[in-house]
């Protein structure tokens, strides 16, 4: 186990390094940050000054080395745009995105699992067909479009929910969370649902597929033959077995949700990390992009680690491997 963890950590370091290099080269290829950030009024002398001030006058490899040197001391650089430490900017925005992603994941499980279970147990009933057909909507319509439709219906037409933004927040341990207030929840409902749509469909489909398959397994047949009640068979034997793919995908999707919350956050003006990264990409704020990607990579690696550990707990056939 220790060897396993140590190895994962080393790999994580490598991934982060590759990521930072990619972003450096990538941003260099996309465009010149000064060209984007500088006021159109600026003359050539002011442009040269800005290039120097942002440290962009050095050759790219030198800029990268400077960055690495500072990063090793825990300094990921200052945002070109905000002149604040990139890490701090991201951490400030993180709670907003986390609560949105958690809300979406929760919604996906709460809605997706029962529906999928039903559709799997009664694959030929009209209700099941209805569920499956509707679930297609979840991933075929572009997120931005569904987002606007949600706003049109629930905020503009019905007036039930606030259209955009994040609601009232409560401070816990120096971070601000909005899911503890009524206003906060009201603001969160639509973006969380918007973000969850794809996941709900995914969970429904995975659960259904899993259930159908497991019902035909010998141990399930055996359990039924033994005269166990259908609900016991369903919830103990079947459910436990289908959790593996669902856990994989939901775990995996949690990271993806954070990385893909970009569109939802910009449609709903949700002040999270996704909004920050899209704004940073739009102005080529490299320090923020690098820091953001590094944090996300670490997050992914952690989640995958957790998923792998969960595997071994849920299914003894899968072992964590120190060495192959």
């Amino acid at each position: 186990m220790t060897v396993f963890l140590l190895r994962r950590l080393l790999q994580a370091g490598g991934v982060v390094l590759v990521m930072s290099l990619l972003v450096f080269v990538g941003v260099f290829a996309i465009g010149d940050p000064v060209e984007i950030l500088i006021s159109p009024e600026a003359d050539q002398i002011e442009r040269e000054r800005a290039v120097k001030a942002l440290g962009l006058d050095l050759p790219l490899w030198q800029q990268y080395l400077v960055f690495l040197g500072k990063a090793l001391q825990g300094d990921l650089g200052r945002s070109f745009v905000f002149n604040e430490p990139a890490l701090q900017l991201i951490l400030q925005r993180m709670p907003a995105t986390l609560e949105l992603a958690l809300g979406a994941t929760l919604a996906a499980l709460v809605i997706g699992l029962p529906l999928g279970l039903y559709a799997g147990l009664r694959p030929h009933s009209p209700v099941s067909r209805g569920i499956m057909a509707t679930s297609i909507l979840g991933f075929s319509l572009p997120t931005f479009w569904v987002g606007l439709m949600l706003i049109m219906v629930f905020a503009v037409q019905l007036g039930w929910l606030p259209s955009t933004g994040r609601g009232e927040t409560v401070e816990i341990l120096g971070t601000r969370w909005s899911f503890l207030t009524r206003d906060g929840l009201a603001h969160m409902a639509m973006p969380a649902l918007n973000l969850a749509l794809f996941k709900i469909s995914l969970v429904i489909r995975l659960t259904r597929a899993g259930v159908r398959e497991t019902m035909l397994m010998d141990y399930v047949k055996f359990a039924r033959a033994k005269g166990l009640s259908p609900s016991r068979v369903t919830f103990v034997h079947v459910f436990k077995n289908i959790l593996i793919p669902v856990v994989t995908v939901v775990g995996l999707e949690f990271g993806g949700t954070i990385a893909f919350s970009v569109v939802t956050e910009s449609v709903f003006a949700w002040p999270g990390m996704g909004k920050l990264i899209i704004d940073s990409i739009n102005v080529l704020d490299r320090p923020v992009m690098v820091a953001y990607l590094m944090i996300i990579v670490l997050l992914f690696i952690t989640i995958n680690l957790l998923v792998d550990i969960t595997y071994s707990v849920l299914d003894p056939r899968v072992r964590l491997e120190g060495k192959s």
């Binding site: 606007l148 706003i151 905020a155 503009v156 259209s163 933004g165 449609v267 003006a269 704004d279």
Partner: peptide, 13 residues
């Protein structure tokens, strides 16, 4: 509210 449609919707709402 940087998204154009969302801004108009916020006014309408």
């Amino acid at each position: 509210i940087t998204n154009d449609a969302a801004r108009t919707a916020a006014l309408l709402a």
